[in-house]
Computed example of a mutant assay.
Amino acid sequence: MSEYREIIKGTHIDFIRLRNIAFVVSAVLLLLGCIGFVMVSMGRANLSTDFTGGTGIHVRFQDVVSIGELRSALIGSDMHDAQIQEVSGTKGFLIKTQFVDTQKENVQDKTNRILLKQLPGKRYEILESNAVGAAVGKTLKRYAIIATVISFIGIIVYIAVRFNFIFGVVATIATFHDVLAMLGIFFILGREMNILFITAILTIAGYSLTDTIVVFDRIRERMAKMKSREDFRSVINGSINEVLSRTIVTNLTTFLVTAALCFLGGPVLFDFSLALVIGIFIGTYSSIFIASPLVFIWREKVL
């Protein structure tokens, strides 16, 4: 622990005093999350074929082709429902269509035929093609929701056993906050939501929970020495300040790794690693500015 304290020592930040500002920021994030959830439920978000069914094709051009040219070529042909996303930093595009392979012609062959006809002379290669049936997509969506709900229930049970019921509920609220915030940010950014995104959400939920438990552990230790209710504010602030250096070092290290994955991992892993990067910041923020102040409010105002 001494190694962490060499970086930031003796902080006396009044985090409880900052709770109202944090709650306003969180209200905005939750509003975005609710909007994103509604849009996902209506199928109007950038959902991958993992959830919607259909075929996803990753094509990379050797010549310069604009997204407008590609859209005109596809929509003007049989693939009128095609959704196109440009892969930044490359000449590649992700094409999503509701079509699936048939005995007459598979989607990759159809794409080749259209590109050769509509964009003559433009050199390209199809790097990847994935097809998912509509029934499978709905099943994956349902299982993703079930996995998220089960994780929340597990959080309540685990924290309630290790600490008490109040801490369990607060930890669940903070984790739910993180999930909704990530969903809202991804929706606003227009990034694709796929199975890897769900994996990132569950990963960040566990990461954020670990941060929250570290703070809760310190709060519990200090509460055992507390002499009066008036001391509880100093218990919360003291606990957060005491682990602040550890939190910063741990999260900075994790951020550097995920940032490297984000920029060097290629287009396939970009959205996954971007979700991790965003989640690290949100998870750290919620454990300090949401979870701990909620414990303070619950104890002071409700009990």
Rank of each mutant, 00 (worst) to 15 (best):
M1N: 11
S2W: 09
S2G: 14
I13R: 08
D14M: 08
R17D: 12
L18M: 13
L18C: 07
A22Q: 13
V24K: 11
V28H: 12
L31F: 15
G33M: 10
C34H: 07
C34N: 07
M42L: 14
R44E: 12
N46Y: 10
T49G: 01
T49R: 02
G56K: 00
I57M: 07
H58I: 07
H58F: 11
V59W: 01
R60G: 06
V64E: 15
I67T: 15
G68A: 08
R71Q: 07
R71K: 15
S72Q: 09
A73G: 04
G76P: 00
S77I: 02
S77P: 04
H80P: 04
D81M: 02
Q83W: 05
I84R: 02
T90C: 08
T90A: 06
L94Y: 04
K96Q: 12
K96P: 03
T97K: 03
T97F: 02
T97G: 01
V100K: 02
T102I: 04
Q103C: 00
K104Q: 12
E105F: 13
N106L: 03
N106W: 01
Q108H: 11
D109W: 03
D109R: 06
T111Q: 08
R113G: 09
R113E: 13
I114Q: 07
L115M: 08
L116S: 15
L119E: 01
G121E: 14
K122R: 14
K122A: 04
Y124M: 10
I126T: 05
V132C: 02
G133M: 05
A134S: 10
K138G: 06
Y143F: 07
A144T: 10
T148F: 11
T148N: 08
I150H: 13
S151E: 10
F152N: 11
I153S: 10
G154I: 09
V157C: 14
Y158Q: 11
A160K: 11
A160F: 05
V161G: 06
R162A: 03
N164I: 00
V169D: 00
I173L: 12
I173F: 08
V179C: 14
L180D: 05
L180R: 09
G184V: 10
F186M: 14
I188E: 06
E192H: 01
E192R: 01
N194W: 00
I195S: 13
L196K: 05
L209H: 03
T210G: 14
T210I: 12
D211I: 04
T212P: 07
R220K: 13
M223R: 10
K225G: 08
S228L: 09
S228R: 15
R229M: 09
R233Q: 13
V235E: 02
G238R: 07
E242G: 04
L244E: 04
L244S: 03
T250L: 05
L252A: 13
T253Q: 09
T254S: 13
L256I: 14
V257Y: 09
T258F: 15
T258N: 13
A259L: 15
A260V: 12
C262Q: 08
F263Y: 14
G265Y: 07
G266F: 08
G266H: 08
D271Q: 14
F281K: 03
S287N: 04
S292L: 06
L294P: 00
W298D: 00
K301Y: 06
K301P: 04
